[in-house]
Simulated assay, not measured.
Amino acid sequence: MNKYNIVMEMSNSTVVAEYEPEKKRSEAYQSEQALENEFIRMLSEQGYEYLKISNSKALINNLRAQL
């Protein structure tokens, strides 16, 4: 277990004098498409609606509707 020199401790955070993150190397990388799909899935679960916007006119119309 690492020991840290605690500068300040509060109920929701702790400040330490120095922190060295553990170096980890990923063996697999996620593609940009997989990242986007996962992000869209997570937002959909939170109640956001996915709109397929294919041109600038549709984008502007959606922006106007949201405002």
Rank of each mutant, 00 (worst) to 15 (best):
G47H: 09
N5A: 14
M8F: 13
E18C: 02
S13P: 00
S31V: 01
N61D: 14
N62R: 08
E18N: 14
Y4T: 04
E32K: 13
E9P: 00
A17C: 03
Y4H: 15
L51Q: 12
R41K: 15
E9C: 06
N37L: 13
E20Q: 09
S44Q: 06
I60K: 11
L63C: 06
Y4G: 11
V16I: 14
M1I: 06
K23R: 03
Q30L: 08
N5M: 00
E49H: 09
N12W: 04
E36C: 05
L67M: 10
Q46P: 01
L51I: 02
E32D: 05
P21L: 04
E32G: 02
N61A: 11
Y4C: 01
S44K: 08
F39R: 11
S26G: 11
K52H: 09
A28K: 13
M8S: 07
M10P: 00
Y19R: 10
Y19K: 08
E38P: 00
K3T: 11
L35V: 10
M1W: 09
R41A: 15
L59T: 06
I40R: 13
N2A: 06
Y48D: 03
A34R: 08
V7Q: 14
S31H: 12
S31R: 04
E32T: 08
Y4D: 06
N61G: 03
L63P: 01
S13G: 08
P21S: 03
L59N: 10
K3H: 10
I40A: 11
L63I: 12
V7G: 00
E27L: 14
Q46C: 09
S31I: 01
S26H: 07
M42Y: 11
L59W: 08
Y29E: 11
I6S: 09
A65N: 07
Y50M: 07
N55C: 12
Q30C: 11
V7F: 01
P21E: 08
E49Y: 06
N61W: 02
A28F: 14
N55I: 01
N12Q: 09
N12E: 13
Q30A: 04
N5C: 03
L63G: 06
K57I: 03
E45L: 15
S26P: 02
N12L: 05
L51S: 14
I53A: 08
K23T: 04
I40T: 09
L35D: 12
P21F: 14
Q46R: 15
R41W: 03
M10L: 12
N2Y: 07
M8E: 13
E9M: 10
N5W: 01
S54V: 04
K52G: 05
L51D: 05
S11G: 04
S56F: 02
S56N: 07
M42S: 13
S13V: 00
E36A: 06
L43V: 01
A58Q: 15
M42Q: 15
K52V: 01
E20I: 06
Y4I: 01
Y4N: 07
S56K: 12
E18W: 00
Q30D: 02
E22A: 15
M42W: 05
I53F: 06
N61L: 06
K52Y: 02
